[in-house]
Nucleic acid binder design. Structure first.
Length: 302
DNA sequence: TTAGCAATAT
DNA sequence: TATATTGCTA
């Protein structure tokens, strides 16, 4: 039990605390005989990592790989946690039960601000968050979306831009070297991309083409703001959070969109609330986006 | 500085 | 011709 005490001291969050590497943690763990002690040590470390993950989640746009690395580390440690517990065998749930009881007691003795999201996610098992999910800070869907998003950022660097073939024809080069930044959206846990503005500074060639995907984001921004009639270009741009997108571009697109809504008055009211946009590709949320070219109004002047 | 409209460019 | 950009005004 002496080892447990020292480890607990080492894992405290005092200002002088120096984080232990995962390798060192695992090495120390191997020296701990008692399974419950191991669980406690792991739990503390996981709690610390989750706290840090929560801390940098505000910067996940800037630090996507830090997020991934932390989540991977968390996943491994939680697997280790489960392994230690299951290693006791189904007939012996003692260590975990003992551990839970200890944690419960610990929490009963603490003033815990349960309104804090961070605290809710700290101590991943002490609050009964027993789960086989390796990443409890984000739910499974959010985590998968983040991974998909990272993967897609490599496979398709700039999905909000017009098709690369189009730019290749304009700029004489592909967008491969102009990979867009990463932009996990905050709030709802859904993720998106952060396209880089066209590399060519020449004002004639870097026309913004509104892809279906970009337009879908535009529509989503309209919905969030409250409708086509109340949304301003600046608001839309801020909600869309698309790197390189200018107010003028949004303004222009909004102008065009409003003109269209006026031409199709029966759809105008749908621009707010439960809207179904005439510009939206059919079943936009269910069908894969058409990659080539930008969307069109789909109507002609009569 | 920003929004909205109209003219102009692509 | 459709769409994006630019210029002008409030």
């Amino acid at each position: 039990m002496a080892s447990l005490s020292s480890l607990e001291l080492n894992l405290s969050l005092k200002p002088s605390y120096v984080p232990k590497t995962i390798a060192n943690l695992l090495k120390d763990l191997s020296n701990v005989q008692n399974a419950v002690d191991k669980l406690v040590v792991l739990n503390d470390y996981i709690t610390d990592l989750e706290g840090e993950l929560s801390g940098i989640s505000a910067f996940k746009r800037q630090l996507p790989h830090c997020m991934l690395l932390l989540m991977e580390a968390l996943g491994s440690l939680k697997e280790e946690f489960m392994k230690i517990n299951s290693g006791m065998g189904p007939e012996n749930e003692g260590p975990l039960m003992e551990f839970l009881a200890m944690k419960k007691k610990s929490y009963e003795g603490k003033q815990v601000d349960v309104s804090s999201q961070d605290n809710q996610n700290c101590d991943f098992i002490g609050k009964g968050l027993m789960s086989s999910s390796p990443h409890l800070l984000w739910n499974t869907k959010q985590h998968k979306a983040f991974q998909d998003f990272i993967r897609a950022s490599y496979e398709n660097p700039n999905p909000f831009e017009p098709s690369s073939s189009r730019f290749a024809s304009v700029n004489g080069t592909t967008n491969v070297n102009g990979a867009g930044g990463l932009n996990p959206r905050t709030g709802d846990g859904t993720l998106s991309y952060n396209p880089k503005p066209p590399a060519q500074p020449n004002g004639k060639n870097n026309r913004r083409s509104w892809s279906h995907q970009l337009h879908a984001r535009f529509l989503e921004a309209l919905r969030i703001i409250g409708g086509v009639d109340v949304a301003t270009p600046k608001q839309i741009r801020e909600v869309m959070q698309v790197e390189g997108l200018t107010n003028d571009q949004v303004k222009s697109h909004l102008q065009k969109y409003r003109l269209h809504c006026r031409r199709v008055p029966e759809n105008k009211a749908q621009g707010s609330g439960n809207y179904q946009d005439p510009w939206a590709p059919p079943n936009i949320l269910r069908r894969p986006f058409k990659q080539e070219g930008s969307f069109s109004l789909g109507c002609r002047k009569s």
